[in-house]
């Protein structure tokens, strides 16, 4: 299904009530169980398929992400959760052979519409990566990068303020305020990752995507990041892919379980980990495969 062909569907999606969508929009959807849709969606995904050349990585995924919620995506490695996450801010565009079909909307606006500028989109949907990837510049320059390229700060004072606020929000300010102009690569792994988070929130995105943000970190640094995610959820909508079920249980409000490119189950986190609806989910959280 191409983006253009789904234009009329998009119109309906905007007018129809979210609850009505279930029966109207989604066909052949029996694979996903649980509370897939919400009344208050920030992002809406319908029948999303992702291909690498001929290989299909994501099969017909439909899901809502609510405003200011933290949604965790879990599943065995290679299940496509990262691929799905990267298609939410069109990072998959950088991979030549990758093709995305279906509708991905934010506030009712199709993210894959031809006239949509991907620059604007990515400013609204920030991303934090698996491995901390600070630029080889100073800490200050790392955080100021986004505001600078987007022209958000009119004066040096504005910029200083944005940098300080972002670093404070990322709980890094106290640790680095004395050495803002030293290299960002000199920080520890956990600090680097928080720097990357600060960098992402410096442009005040609406949604932050996190792709296994703690997988390269030690437990103490991980705890700090998790704490941070909880604080951030007051202002931002967060989608986090994680390898660790405990982490999903700790930080998220809802959890989505992916299996071999299919979305199996979406439910409030507590429910997923106490009484999963789908046998595959149960098998995964009880550790029968991983």
């Amino acid at each position: 299904m191409t983006q253009l062909a789904s234009a009329d569907k998009k119109k309906r999606a905007n007018t129809a009530k979210p609850t009505a969508m279930k029966s109207l929009e989604v066909e052949g959807h029996e694979a996903t169980v649980g509370k897939v849709f919400t009344d208050n969606p920030k992002m809406t995904m319908r029948n999303v398929n992702v291909y690498y050349d001929d290989k299909q990585a994501i099969h017909d995924v439909s899901i809502d992400i609510a405003k200011n919620e933290v949604i965790a995506m879990i599943g065995p490695s290679g299940c496509g959760k990262s691929t799905f996450l990267r298609s939410l801010n069109r990072m998959n565009d950088t991979v030549d052979i990758c093709r995305v079909e279906g509708d991905i909307l934010m506030d009712g606006e199709n993210l894959y519409a031809p006239k949509l500028d991907v620059v604007e989109l990515r400013a609204r949907v920030g991303m934090v990566f698996q491995k901390p990837n600070p630029f080889p510049k100073s800490i200050y320059e790392n955080v100021a990068y986004g505001p600078k390229i987007h022209g958000l700060a009119d004066t040096r004072v504005d910029l200083d303020e944005i940098v300080e606020n972002s670093l404070r929000k990322a709980s890094l300010w106290e640790e680095v305020k004395e050495r803002l102009h030293q290299g960002g690569t000199g920080l520890s792994g956990g600090q680097q990752q928080r720097l990357c988070i600060a960098r992402a929130i410096a442009v005040s995105p609406e949604v932050i995507l996190m792709d296994e943000p703690c997988s390269a970190l030690d437990p103490i640094a991980t705890a700090k990041i998790e704490e941070l995610i909880e604080e951030l959820s007051e202002n931002f909508t967060i989608a986090i892919v994680t390898h660790s079920m405990q982490q999903a249980a700790r930080v998220s409000h809802r959890t989505a379980y992916f299996h071999l490119g299919k979305l199996i189950e979406v439910n409030p986190t507590e429910q997923v980990f106490t009484m999963p609806e789908h046998p595959l989910t149960e098998a995964y959280i009880t550790g029968r495969f991983g």
């Binding site: 400013a123 987007h150 022209g151 958000l152 995105p205």
Partner: peptide
């Protein structure tokens, strides 16, 4: 954030 969005759109 809305203010920011406006600035980004302008740029």
């Amino acid at each position: 954030s809305i203010n920011h969005l406006e600035k980004i759109k302008n740029s």
